[in-house]
Design a protein around this nucleic acid. Sequence first.
DNA 1: CGATAATAGATGCAAATGCATTTAATAGCG
DNA 2: CGCTATTAAATGCATTTGCATCTATTATCG
Lengths: 128, 128
Amino acid sequence: MRARERLLGAIEADLKVAGMPPLAWYDVLWELARSQDGKLRPYEIEERTLLAQYNLSRLLDRLEREGLVRREVFAEDGRGRWVVMSDAGRKLRERMWIVYAKSIETHIGSKLAENEAKTIAGLLDRFL
Amino acid sequence: MRARERLLGAIEADLKVAGMPPLAWYDVLWELARSQDGKLRPYEIEERTLLAQYNLSRLLDRLEREGLVRREVFAEDGRGRWVVMSDAGRKLRERMWIVYAKSIETHIGSKLAENEAKTIAGLLDRFL
DNA sequence: CGATAATAGATGCAAATGCATTTAATAGCG
DNA sequence: CGCTATTAAATGCATTTGCATCTATTATCG
């Protein structure tokens, strides 16, 4: 818990210094970027990011307001929506990644050997 | 990050079901309980819990409002305060611990062997 | 088919958080 | 000593979160 606190704090701070939005934005943009067509249903993003439904709904409001995604109708089910990534969204994710990757390397990569990282990942995987 | 998300969510949920306040309350009460005289300066709690200064200040407002702690003058430095644990605070921490301990065992203890837990702790310690 | 239940997502309101700044007091230095 | 810088803690205001509920739509089952 403490390690996560420290790491997340350090990484968010790096993003902020670089004038970037919070990590949660990245998480959503990343899930969209690596999805088939750059679009997902809100509940899919929810599952993948572990964001609460109401928090995601409002996060999407913010992303939409910034022109990073847009919500489109999902024809097969009138209750659903598509969340579609825009070009601006793709661009921002790439710019964020440059900062984020460096931050990961600084705060994590440089402190763990490959096999140690694998050990942690293997053990923590039991909780997922 | 995900493991922490899941675990914390599960533990907070257990506390809530048992009618207990959030884990942050426990953290503060625990630091007080294990301190010398059941009292600490706000900045000491801040260091130990990693809570932000302004968040702690307001958390203490809530704890004080519930009669779990009280703020007293710190004679040696007029800027400082003592945060003193009350009997109700001690009692609550104990009751929380019953739920919390069970929750830890259920969600963590039962999934890791002693040596595995030590391995994780040893590796994550690099980030502190 | 029609009524009831379930699901996807949005939203009003209260509480918590983040940020910048304030207040009050002590420390440090010429 | 007096002035400026620093520190401890609190606070006003904007943003975000949590909770409960709502709306709209689809699924289920007699």
